[in-house]
Nucleic acid binder design. Structure first.
Length: 875
RNA sequence: GGGGUUAUAGCUCAGCUGGUUAGAGCGCCACGUUGACAUCGUGGAGGUCAUUGGUUCGAUUCCAAUUAAUCCCACCA
C-alpha cells in the first residue's frame, strides 16, 4: 500500500525527472559509435528561456516525434533550429547593449553602428536577422542564432563554389532605403501608411511641340531621373508616337516614348513617366527597354549632382520647387487630390526611398531542378502532402535570389576588391593583398541573407566540410519538423543546397505544423502583446498538459488557437491518469506477481487486454502516419473511458473480494494495462508517464529506453469482447432507466436477464451489481413469467426485466416502449431501403451489404421483443 | 493578379483512401460524495456537416461553381 496525495503534483515530478534525465545525459546526447537508438538528440521537454508559442509548438512536436521514434527503435536527429540555439550569446549581446546605455534611439546611429561591427568581430559570425529590431530593447525577437567557425567555413565554401560555377553574380536591384536611418530595409520592414497627397498631371512636349503627352505622378521630384515615358502599346491615343521622343521639362533632356504592357490605359492619363533608379516597376520597364538609370537622390534623400539646379535640396523641398517651376513653365496641367499608400520605415516612419544598388544574386534555375526532382520522386515527402504544392509553385517559378543584405550581423560576403587595379576576388580565407597588383584589399561590406546560411544547416551544423562522424551518421535525417510559413524560405533551400552540396536530400520527411494563435485567431506578436509565455503555462499547469494540449485537438498543418481551458482539461487528464495509477499502486502488494495466467482471466480481463492490444495497434499506426493528434486522442480515450470508467470499476470486486487467484490476476492485468498505456502516452506526456512507469513493479529503468509495445495480430478474445458489449449496454440501459424513473442511487434493484447464450454472460453478474446498483440478478435462456410492472430493456443480444412495481407508471412505460419501437422501426426502414435497392445489393461490397443485413436482423429481433412487451402491457 | 487553406454542436476542433444512429473537449441542464479521482461520477439537451449543381447504388467525405473568411507571393504611376 502506498501513500500518495490525492492530486497530481506536476511541479515536483517534473523537477525530479528533468534533473535525472539531464544528469543521465539523455538531453543533447552525442551520437555514439555503436549507433544505438540512444544516439538521438533529445531536446529538453521542459522549455527553458522565454520563447514564443510557435517555437514551443515546434519543440513539442519535434520532441514528441523523437520520443516515439526512439522507443519504437527509430533514430532521429534533433538539433536546435535557427530560432532556438544560442540564447546565451543573445543575452550577452543584449546585456552589452544595455551596458553601453544604448536604446532604441541609438539604433542605426553612428555609435551603435560602430559597436555592432566591433561585436561582429568579437562574436565571430553571428547571424542576426534584422538586428535593429533586437537593438530596440532587451525584449527582443528570437530570430537569430550563432554560427561557430565551422559553420562559417561551410558558408564561405559554398559561396565560393557557386561563385566559381558562375551561379553567383552581382547585379542591379531596387532596394528600400531609409534616408533617416541610412540603411537598407527589407520589404518586410517597410510599413505602408495611407497618406493624403496629390496626383500631379505634367505635360511633356515633343521637341518640335507637334505633339505632347501628359503623365500623372505622385512624385514629381523624381522626374529629374526620368529616362522615358511609357504608354500601353495598345492605346490608340498614343500608338503613333511610340518610338518618338519628348523633352523633359525643367531638365530639357530628350527621352523616348516606349510601349509597355505595364502601363494601364485606364489609370490617370494612360501615360507613365519612367524613373528606373527610383521605382521598382520603372526599374523593370527600364530593363526591358534598355533605358539608362539616373540616380537623383543621395543616401540622405537630398538631390545629388544629377539634379542640376536642384542639387542639395531635400527631396520634399525639391518637390515643392519642382511643382512651382512646372507651374511657371506651364507644364503643370492639373492637380488632383489623391490618397495612396506610402512606404515608411517601420522604425522611424520616415518615407522610404527606393534606389538602385549593386546586389549579389544566385542564379537559382540550375540549382532547383535536383531539388524539385527530390520531392517529385518521393525522396522527400511533405506531411501533409498538400504542402508540396506551395513548394512546387515556388520552385517551378523560381527567381534569382538576392542574397546580399545591408545588415550589421551575419556572414560577410567573401568577396574582396582591390581599389588599385579594380580586381574582384572570391576567397575562402581573406587574402592579405591583391594577387594581381599587390594592392590593399577591401572586403564587401554586405552580409548574406539569413536563409543562405540556414539553408546549409542540415550539414553545416554537423561539421561539413570535414568528414565527421556526426555528418556521416546524421545526414540525411529522418524528419524535419517545421511550420508552413517557412517552406519556401527554409525548407526549399535546405533541399536545394543539400542536393547541390551533399548530392542527397537532407531529410526524408517534412512534417508541417500550423501556428499557435491567440484565442481570437490572431498571430501572437510582441506588438499586439498577445503572446503567451510557455513558462507561465508550465508553472500553472505543467509541461505535460502544455504539450498534450498542443498536440491534440487539431490536425497537422492547421493553425490552432490557444485556450487556457484546453490546457486545463489536459491537466485534468493528467490528474485522472495519476489517480488511476494511485488506485493501482494502493491496491497491489509491493511484491506483486505481474505474471498474467491466461487460464484465470475472466471476461472483463480479456476484454480490457483485447482493447489494449487494439489501442496499441491504432496508436502505433497513427504515429507511423504522423497523425499525432489521433494517436494522442486514442490513448486518452482508452485510459479515461475504458480503463478508468469500466475496467477499474469492474476490477474492484475482485480486489476487495476474497479469491486470491482472482486478486492476483486482476492486479497483474491492471499493471500490464497501466504500464503499456504509459508507454503509449509517453511521447505526449513524458514526465507523468516516467513517474508512474517506474513505480510499477519491475520497471527500474527509464521508460525512454523501454521498447515500444507491440500489438498482437489476432484478436483471440472476440467472444469475451462481444459479451462485454452486452454487459456494458445493459449497465447503461439500467442506469438510464434508473435516472428516468428517479430511482434513488442508494436503492438496489433486481434484474432478470434473458439471453440466448446465457453461458457467455456467466461470471459477469458481479459487474452489474457493482456498476448498475443491482442487488440480485439472474441470467437465463427462458423468458419466464413477465409481469406488467416489470421494466423491459432490450439490447443487442439480451433483454432485461426489472421489477419496479412501485415506481412504474404503466402509461409511461407503454409510451417509452412505444418510442423504442419507433426508433427500431426507423432502423429497420433504413436498412430495408438499402437492401431493397437492387443496385445497392449488386454494386456495394459484400461486407457492407452483410453489415446492413445484420443490422436489419438485430433490429427485427428487438422489434419483436418490444412488441411482445407492449402486448403484455396492454393485456 | 498568381498560388494555397478553411467553412461540421453555443465555443474550439476531430472525422485516413465515400457506407457511422456524424464524434471529442469546453460550456449548458438534472442528479450524485459506496473507500483512485469534485482537477470526479451518472444521465441529458444541442448539428439539414456554408450554398447550389454533378459523379455514384450511396456524398460530411470526391468534382465543379457560388458565398464568406484567411495565408503566402507579386503589385498598387
Amino acid at each position: 500500500m502506498k501513500d500518495m496525495p490525492k492530486v497530481y503534483d506536476h511541479e515536483s515530478v517534473e523537477a525530479k525527472w528533468y534533473e535525472k534525465w539531464e544528469s543521465s545525459g539523455y538531453f543533447h546526447a552525442k551520437p555514439n559509435p555503436e549507433k544505438t537508438p540512444f544516439t538521438i538528440v533529445i531536446p529538453p521537454p521542459n522549455i527553458t528561456g522565454k520563447l514564443h508559442m510557435g517555437h514551443a509548438l515546434d519543440n513539442t512536436l519535434q520532441d514528441a516525434i523523437a520520443r516515439y521514434k526512439r522507443m519504437a527503435g527509430y533514430e532521429m536527429l534533433w538539433l536546435p533550429g535557427t530560432d532556438h540555439a544560442s540564447i546565451a550569446t543573445e543575452v550577452k549581446i543584449v546585456e552589452a547593449l544595455a551596458a553601453e546605455g544604448l536604446t532604441k534611439k541609438d539604433v542605426g546611429r553612428e555609435g551603435f553602428l560602430k559597436r555592432a561591427w566591433q561585436w561582429r568581430e568579437e562574436y565571430g559570425t553571428t547571424i542576426v536577422k534584422q538586428l535593429r529590431k533586437m537593438g530596440s530593447s532587451c525584449d527582443w525577437d528570437r530570430e537569430r542564432f550563432t554560427m561557430d567557425e565551422g559553420c562559417n567555413r561551410a558558408v564561405v565554401k559554398v559561396f565560393k563554389s557557386l561563385y566559381d560555377k558562375k551561379l553567383i553574380y552581382r547585379g542591379d536591384r531596387i532596394i528600400n532605403w531609409c534616408p533617416d536611418c541610412k540603411t537598407a530595409l527589407s520589404d518586410a520592414e517597410v510599413e505602408y501608411e495611407s497618406q493624403q497627397s496629390h496626383l500631379w498631371h505634367i505635360r511633356y512636349d515633343a521637341p518640335d511641340k507637334s505633339y505632347s503627352i501628359i503623365v500623372a505622378t505622385t512624385r514629381p521630384e523624381t522626374m529629374l531621373g526620368d529616362t522615358a515615358v511609357a504608354v500601353n502599346p495598345e492605346d490608340p491615343r498614343y500608338k503613333d508616337i511610340i518610338g518618338k521622343t519628348v523633352v523633359l521639362p525643367l531638365v530639357n533632356r530628350e527621352i523616348p516614348i516606349v510601349g509597355d504592357e505595364y502601363c494601364e490605359m485606364e489609370f490617370g492619363t494612360g501615360a507613365v513617366k519612367i524613373t528606373p533608379a527610383h521605382d521598382p516597376n520603372d526599374f523593370e520597364v527600364g530593363r526591358r527597354h534598355d533605358l539608362p538609370i539616373i540616380k537623383v537622390f543621395d543616401e540622405r534623400g537630398t538631390i545629388n549632382e544629377n539634379g542640376g539646379a536642384y542639387q542639395g535640396q531635400d527631396r520634399f523641398e525639391c518637390r515643392k520647387n519642382i511643382v512651382k517651376d512646372l507651374e511657371a513653365s506651364g507644364n503643370l496641367v492639373k492637380i488632383e487630390d489623391y490618397t495612396h499608400n506610402v512606404g515608411t520605415c517601420y522604425r522611424c516612419h520616415t518615407t522610404i526611398e527606393t534606389i538602385v544598388s549593386k546586389q549579389w544574386f544566385v542564379d537559382m534555375k540550375p540549382l532547383t531542378e535536383p531539388a524539385l526532382e527530390a520531392v517529385r520522386s518521393g525522396a522527400v515527402k511533405f506531411i501533409p502532402d498538400r504542402f508540396s504544392k506551395p513548394y512546387f509553385n515556388w520552385m517551378e517559378n523560381i527567381r534569382d535570389w538576392c542574397i546580399s543584405r545591408q545588415l550589421w550581423w551575419g556572414h560577410r560576403i567573401p568577396v574582396y576588391y582591390c581599389d588599385d587595379c579594380g580586381g574582384t576576388f572570391c576567397e575562402e580565407t581573406a587574402p592579405e593583398k591583391c594577387p594581381i597588383c599587390g594592392g590593399k584589399l577591401r572586403q564587401d561590406e554586405d552580409v548574406l541573407d539569413t536563409w543562405f546560411s540556414s539553408g546549409l544547416w542540415p550539414f553545416s551544423t554537423l561539421g561539413w566540410p570535414d568528414k565527421t562522424e556526426e555528418l556521416d551518421y546524421f545526414y540525411p535525417t529522418t524528419t524535419l519538423v517545421t511550420g508552413y510559413d517557412i517552406i519556401t524560405f527554409w525548407v526549399s533551400r535546405m533541399i536545394t543546397f543539400g542536393m547541390e552540396v551533399m548530392k542527397k536530400p537532407p531529410f526524408a520527411n517534412v512534417y508541417i505544423h500550423g501556428l499557435v494563435r491567440d484565442s481570437q485567431g490572431r498571430k501572437m506578436s510582441k506588438s499586439l502583446g498577445n503572446g503567451i509565455d510557455p513558462l507561465e503555462i508550465i508553472e500553472k499547469y505543467g509541461a505535460d498538459p502544455l504539450r498534450f494540449s498542443l498536440v491534440t485537438g487539431n490536425s497537422a498543418g492547421n493553425d490552432m488557437r490557444f485556450y487556457w481551458e484546453k490546457v486545463e482539461s489536459a491537466r485534468n487528464f493528467c490528474n485522472k491518469v495519476y489517480n488511476a495509477a494511485r488506485f493501482v499502486l494502493m491496491n497491489i502488494p509491493e511484491d506483486a506477481d505481474t505474471h498474467i495466467r491466461e487460464e484465470l482471466l475472466d471476461t472483463a480481463d480479456k476484454w480490457i487486454l483485447s482493447r489494449l492490444n487494439e489501442i496499441t495497434r491504432s496508436v502505433t499506426d497513427n504515429l507511423e502516419g504522423y497523425e499525432l493528434n489521433l494517436a494522442a486522442e486514442k490513448i486518452y480515450d482508452f485510459i479515461w473511458s475504458e480503463f478508468c470508467d469500466w475496467y477499474i470499476e469492474m476490477a474492484k470486486s475482485a480486489l476487495y473480494g476474497e479469491d486470491l487467484d482472482r486478486k492476483q490476476t486482476v492486479c497483474a492485468v491492471l499493471i500490464r494495462v497501466l504500464s503499456v498505456s504509459m508507454q503509449l502516452l509517453h511521447p505526449f506526456m513524458p514526465f507523468i508517464t516516467e513517474e508512474i512507469y517506474q513505480q510499477l513493479p519491475g520497471h527500474e529503468e527509464t521508460i525512454m529506453l523501454s521498447s515500444w509495445p507491440k500489438a498482437e495480430e489476432t484478436d483471440k478474445y472476440a467472444r469475451e469482447c462481444a459479451a462485454m458489449e452486452i454487459i456494458m449496454e445493459l449497465v447503461k440501459s439500467i442506469r438510464n432507466i434508473r435516472a428516468d424513473l428517479k430511482v434513488p442511487p442508494a436503492q438496489r434493484i433486481s434484474v432478470r436477464i434473458v439471453s440466448e447464450k446465457p453461458e457467455e454472460l456467466t461470471g459477469t453478474e458481479g459487474y452489474l451489481l457493482k456498476l448498475a446498483g443491482v442487488e440480485k440478478t439472474d441470467i437465463s435462456r427462458e423468458r419466464g413469467t413477465v409481469l406488467k410492472s416489470d421494466v423491459h430493456l432490450v439490447c443487442n443480444g439480451a433483454e432485461a426485466f426489472i421489477p419496479l412495481a412501485s415506481l412504474v407508471d404503466l402509461e409511461k412505460e407503454r409510451e417509452r416502449i412505444g418510442k423504442e419501437i419507433e426508433r427500431v422501426q426507423g432502423d429497420i426502414a433504413r436498412a430495408n431501403a438499402k437492401l431493397s435497392n437492387e443496385k445497392f445489393v449488386q454494386k456495394a461490397p459484400e461486407a457492407v451489404v452483410n453489415e446492413e443485413r445484420r443490422k436489419l436482423q438485430n433490429a427485427a429481433d428487438m422489434l419483436q421483443k418490444l412488441q411482445q412487451r407492449l402486448q403484455t402491457l396492454q393485456d
